[in-house]
Design a protein around this nucleic acid. Structure first.
Length: 105
DNA sequence: TCCGTGACGGTGG
DNA sequence: GCCACCGCCACGG
C-alpha cells in the first residue's frame, strides 16, 4: 500500500475539486506537498477508479488547459462533454478556459 | 549502474 | 499559436 499511499493522497485532493472547476496535475501535486511529482499524479489518475469510485479525474487537466490524449472514459471528447455538463467552458482551440475555471483552493 | 519510460511543465524557436 | 526540446522523479529491465 505504499505506492497506493501516494495514489490515495492524489485521489483525496482530486475529490476536493468542486463541479464546474478544473485543476492541473501540477497543482494537485503541489497540494500534496510534492510539486515535482506531477507526472506521478497523472499515473494515479490513469489508475483511478473513476468518477464511480469517487475520483472525478476528468476535472484534472494539463497546465495549458488541454485534455489527456488517452482518456480512459472514451476519449478526450467524452471528458470534454462531462466538463461542459458541469458548466466548464472551452475555448475554440478545444482547451479549457483556465482563466475562468481553474480551481482555486 | 545505466538506460528507457511516462494522463507533466516551462521555455524557446 | 503550435511544435520541439529539456528538465524532473521514481521504477523496472
Amino acid at each position: 500500500m505504499d505506492n497506493e499511499g501516494f495514489f490515495q493522497r492524489a485521489y483525496g485532493v482530486v475529490r476536493l475539486i468542486p463541479p464546474g472547476r478544473v485543476a492541473t496535475y501540477g497543482q494537485v501535486a503541489r497540494m500534496m506537498g510534492e510539486p515535482r511529482k506531477a507526472r506521478y499524479v497523472g499515473f494515479a489518475m490513469h489508475s483511478s477508479p473513476g468518477l464511480s469510485g469517487g475520483v472525478p479525474c476528468h476535472r484534472v487537466v494539463f497546465a495549458d488547459g488541454s485534455l489527456a490524449p488517452g482518456f480512459a472514459f472514451g476519449g478526450p471528447e467524452e471528458q470534454r462533454r462531462m466538463l461542459e455538463a458541469e458548466g466548464v467552458g472551452f475555448l475554440a482551440s478545444g482547451k479549457v478556459d483556465m482563466r475562468r475555471f481553474e480551481w482555486e483552493a
